[in-house]
Design a protein around this nucleic acid. Sequence first.
RNA 1: GUUCCCGUAGCUCAGCGGAUAGAGCAACUGCCUUCUAAGCAGUUGGUCACAGGUUCGAUUCCUGUCGGGAACGCCA
Length: 595
Amino acid sequence: MNGGRLPMLLTSMKEELNIALKAAVQAAGKSFEDLGVAFERAALGPCKSPDHGDLATNAAMLLAKPLGTNPIALGTAIAEQLAAHPFIAKAEAVKPGFVNLRLSPAAFAHVLSYVKQQREAYGDSTLGQKRRVLLEFVSANPTGPMHLGHCRHAATGDSLARILRAASYDVTTEFYINDAGAQIKALGRSFRYACLKVAGLLDPATVQHENDPETGRAFIVHDGERVQYTGDYMEEFAREFVSTATPDQLLGMSPEEFSLEARNRNLEMIKRDLGAMGVFFDNYVSEKALHENAAVEEAMLKLRESGRTYEQDGAVWLKTQDYGDPEDRVLIKGDGAYTYLVPDIAYHHDKYLRGYDRYINVFGADHGGYLPRLKAGVAALGHDPEALTIILLRLVFLTRGGQRVKFSKRAGNFVALSDVVEEAGPDAARWFILCRSSDSEFEFDLDLAKQASSQNPVYKVQYAHARICTMIDKGTEEGFTMLADPARVADILTAPIERDMILYLAQFPEVVERSARELSVHHIPAYALGLADLWNSYYSMARTDETFRVLRPEAKELSEARLFLADTMRQVLSNALGLMGITAPSRMTKAAEAE
RNA sequence: GUUCCCGUAGCUCAGCGGAUAGAGCAACUGCCUUCUAAGCAGUUGGUCACAGGUUCGAUUCCUGUCGGGAACGCCA
């Protein structure tokens, strides 16, 4: 065995196909330029129908015309070339022009050997070439609890980080704290009001009750300013804080001190909620700090020096139209104050100064217009705007009993992340979020997610993993020893479903690489479910056909070969779940679920 | 009005130009003295919104129409 130096099966087969195609191109006396995109689009993948073979390529159909031949003739030539490879047992060109490949036992042995050798690293690729990526996500305002949307952002961002790391990117995750500006002042006022109220220090004369003329909602005015943040969490913060402070201290605190105190408590709450779903960040970057160390001022100066700004109507504008913005944006308002754009550009300037190769932001779809502004900003500061990518996530709706839920007890006028994670559990919450592609709006069915039952796909996948674990344990107890030689395993395991499993295992690295390339997470759960289905089907075949039992004392070597396959299935299930941040339990019992 | 996203089974959603369009849920029929039934096997269910175009081949790419959502502030 050459060990890790051997390429993965599909990679290896694609290289082989390329060699065959190049030979065909040369034989026809053509150049690759003549072929254009046809050559690039030639693909090799698993067959949909097992009757056709294990793998198939469409290359002959794409290239026949530019090469001046017909697909069957070209396909036959390609097939002949491929048939010589030790991984190929049979290659033939068929009707429309597909070349169908049947893999040899050596190919199956290779897959098994590779999984076994790579273990936790199976699925990893070299796509990222160790390039450094700064991945920013969630960045929830520290003014209240996180909502269902943040749950999507957290699960997606965290999983993306795992996928990119598997693809050899050097990923740093970052949470940007919007702890400056008007909303933090409002937070401080709300917190001060809550503290005085809890401490019994509130002067009734300073409080008015009013109604919003537009929404009709009631709100409180304290000391002439609207109290904006009034959820249960605010009272909890206040109770905690008041218990540690004297009335004199409370009354003597500045607005800034109240703001800071509330911001800190809020951030702790955010970290706690994220922690409950297993999401942790490498960095937390404070907007306030960017102001305090003059990074914002400095960025503004540089923007002006760049020549990419101009003054008009008493304001300072940035030429964002150069990057696809429908109109230019204001940096400094008529009243001299910065718009939100300046600190945001300063923050990205700071990111670039820290020296990464790529900057990926996960934003809500309502921030779709952001990209041109940020690109224009970083470009004006001398950075490469193409290194910045924004992934937009669309809205999530929570449904319960078939009805959309808009409010939660904890958060008031929206559904709290913590409620969803508590009710569904972190694994199911992540699963249902990751299943969906980022640009689709979707309904999170809480009834389904919280069902610890057969109806829930996430448990199906975990169940398959747990079943294998207990089976391997049992095999060990009964004196079975996993075979050591993958070639022998491949020789023994020739049942169609066993071949299907091995072929499916071979596809995992491609799925992960594709996810990393597209920055889309939803391929992973789809793959994992397919893998679990295969194992569960296989497992159940023993009910109707005794010879499909894995552990059969009367067929020791067969059993030990099947244990090998079981272990590779377990490994890949575990790796796939790992990329989603979902646990891979080694045991699942109904009793445990009923607690 | 302009730009972007979406339109696929009763519901929620996958589907990197390829062969007979898939999964989960819901409905129906079977299967636990056996390595975990949180499982398996099967049935029902589709004008891939519509119309053109490109292609050997279109659910996929292009154009248009219709329908749904979002963004279009000197708000953040």
